[in-house]
Design a binder for these strands. Structure first.
Lengths: 137, 137
DNA sequence: TGTTGACATAGAGCAAACTCTAGACGATAG
DNA sequence: CTATCGTCTAGAGTTTGCTCTATGTCAACA
């Protein structure tokens, strides 16, 4: 399959001289740690933009998709729900006039993360204290 | 109900001169932010020790239970699963010979929280960067 | 030419952690 | 006295976020 993928994902959609990176869904899964299932699910839910297809109907992820995905993982891993990510994605797809709303969402997320961090630090002291209380000496 | 609760939860189980604090499940829910359902669920699962009852069969939480619960929330909010919390609880109920295992569990949790914090800080910079990129000027 | 392997879709299934419901009981307020 | 309130148990239901299954296509390798 290796050569197959190379043919399909490295040579298609390229203009002359253009150096572009294109990934199969399997490759993306490998790179991001998300499962193939999850990637398809994210696209279906509209958390990813509609991914381009080659003439076999297979998804072809490009650099922009990868960046989108990276930020998606950032939002996900800071506790944003699927619903909110969907909202953010829809706003992004609507173009520049939604920038203020996107900033508002990101500010909110930033606040949340900051309070998460401070909460976690409090909890960290509680755990440390407990360990010390348990420890001999 | 206020007077009722006072009678049941402030005067029972007290030795002469002892100042003890006792809470109904509703009061505990209010104080901890957990729902009554969740509290009962935690007891059923063995995440809380068996809670004492009054002669009507109602749960009477004391100071120790509240502290247990507080630490339980700490573990929960740092991402420990119900299963692990159950394990920790069982170890605690088994007495002093399980202290080393409990320390091991808490050390593991501590590591996790520390790496969560550092991950979150990384994500925080990504979000900030994105906000800046969006922002005019 | 037949098997293998990555991909496709639609939709069912699953685990975790609650969350709620039904039906009952005793206490208290009006 | 009766309606309401807070509690009880057992067990069903819900939500979120995946995760998997069935079925099928196409291309490459032996």
């Amino acid at each position: 399959m290796t050569r197959n993928l190379e043919r399909i994902f490295a040579n298609k959609f390229l203009l002359k001289g253009e150096v572009s990176i294109q990934y199969s869904i399997g490759k993306v899964a490998e790179e991001t740690g998300l499962s193939i299932h999850t990637l398809r699910y994210y696209e279906k839910e509209g958390i990813l933009p509609p991914i381009k297809r080659n003439d076999l109907g297979m998804r072809v992820f490009d650099k922009d998709d990868m960046e989108w995905l990276e930020f998606t993982c950032c939002l996900r891993n800071t506790g944003m729900t699927i619903e909110e990510m969907k909202t953010f994605s829809h706003l992004t797809l609507q173009g520049d006039e939604t920038v203020p709303q996107r900033i508002a969402l990101l500010n909110q997320q930033q606040e949340r993360v900051m309070s998460q961090v401070s909460q976690l630090n409090t909890y960290l002291s509680m755990i440390k204290y407990k360990i010390e209380k348990y420890s001999p000496e």
